[in-house]
Design a protein around this nucleic acid. Structure first.
Lengths: 205, 205
DNA sequence: CGTATTGGGTAGTGGCACTATCTATGTTAG
DNA sequence: CTAACATAGATAGTGCCACTACCCAATACG
């Protein structure tokens, strides 16, 4: 199909499709002539995926590019894909983990839980910074509460992985994992807020 | 204290503090003269709070203003505060809930769980849109899985509410709820990603 | 053959979160 | 008391981002 049909079927303006092509978010079509290229269903699917990551999850264009690149590069190593989102660095990044405020607490927590996660996992820093910020605002999360959240996170992760089809093609599986990890995030936060409202109402009856 | 000290103690440039004052994120200081105003510890705390919401959680300036306004307006009604974040509308918004793709599924889920949440809760729409987007990409979340996530969300919410001090001043309690709801979000997502990496490693051993 | 479409490139737009500058006024050290 | 410095309030400018509009030469199609 030509770009206009890709645009019509995806609802994305051709100018924007060209922009995504320039930014490397979308693979180029098969050129049939100097001013003609052919796109297929894989382009359409990729375009919808990009739109979802940017629109629903709110990733930036550059973050989206990084995530998609990481998935493509490590399609066969499913469990490495799962940690890669939102500020992720290349998996082969072997720089020293930057000491981050709250990092020691995070290391201790992960050790206590017996979790095996990469030293470079950006989530470590995110967690440390967030806990440190809360503390500085006088809202320290107790160790017990943190353990509770971690246990629930672990059960969520089990649920996440249970839904992956182990028989699927590795590339499909990686993309599926990406979608269910990243795109589900707003849904999980929404569920938590709904649950908070319900629970709060229940307690104040 | 004067604005320069507020700036020094918070690490926020005076120009930015003035910008927040203009935008209504920060209450004006007590004017002592035409070109002089006095700020106190409450301003400092508020400023740090604003910075945390914008920097750590990634809220926009306008969303931050809305959230802070909602907290101030409903400090006594704790359970209404808890649902208010990221795209929240005023609580007294009595417009018809806009029919949203996936809305029926969300309504059914909430009914099945026995949750009592407002019809206007923006999280309903977020959840519906996200599930719908996933479905359009061929990654439908099964009803069972959704129930599982909801159950875990409910337990998370219980943990959240357990940590609120029922004896605290209503305003403090509202602010505390805000911090633990909104600011904890990146931490919970980080925990999930770490848990996914661990669980994935465990299964592939 | 003539009109429409396309790929590829460049430049422009609007929104956002600041940031810099200006002026009239205040404060304060010497 | 005055000169150097700080401040409130206002306006304008900056840099980044995600598009969006336009242009041109080269097809494609009826």
């Amino acid at each position: 199909m030509r770009i206009s049909e890709l645009s019509r079927r995806s609802g994305v303006p051709t100018a924007t499709i060209k922009y995504y092509l320039r930014e490397g978010l979308l693979q180029p079509g098969r050129a049939t002539a100097a001013t003609q290229a052919d796109y297929d269903e894989t382009h359409l699917r990729r375009l919808r995926l990009v739109r979802a990551l940017i629109g629903v999850r709110g990733l930036s264009v550059s973050a989206t590019k990084e995530v998609l690149g990481a998935v493509a590069a490590h399609a066969g190593e499913r469990h490495q894909v799962l940690g890669l989102v939102l500020g992720a660095r290349p998996v082969d990044d072997d720089t020293e983990p930057t000491p981050v405020p709250g990092g020691a607490e995070v290391d201790a927590l992960i050790g206590e839980l017996g979790w095996q996660v990469s030293e470079h996992a950006p989530s470590r820093a995110v967690l440390g910074e967030t806990l440190e910020t809360l503390r500085s605002l006088g809202e320290e999360i107790s160790h017990d509460a943190l353990l509770g959240y971690a246990a629930l996170a672990e059960r969520t992760a089990v649920l996440d992985l249970d839904q992956l089809d182990p028989h699927a093609d590795p590339v499909d599986q990686a993309e599926s994992a990406l979608l269910r990890t990243v795109l589900l995030e707003p849904a999980l936060l929404a569920l938590r807020r709904l649950a908070q409202e319900h629970e709060s109402a229940r307690r104040n009856t």
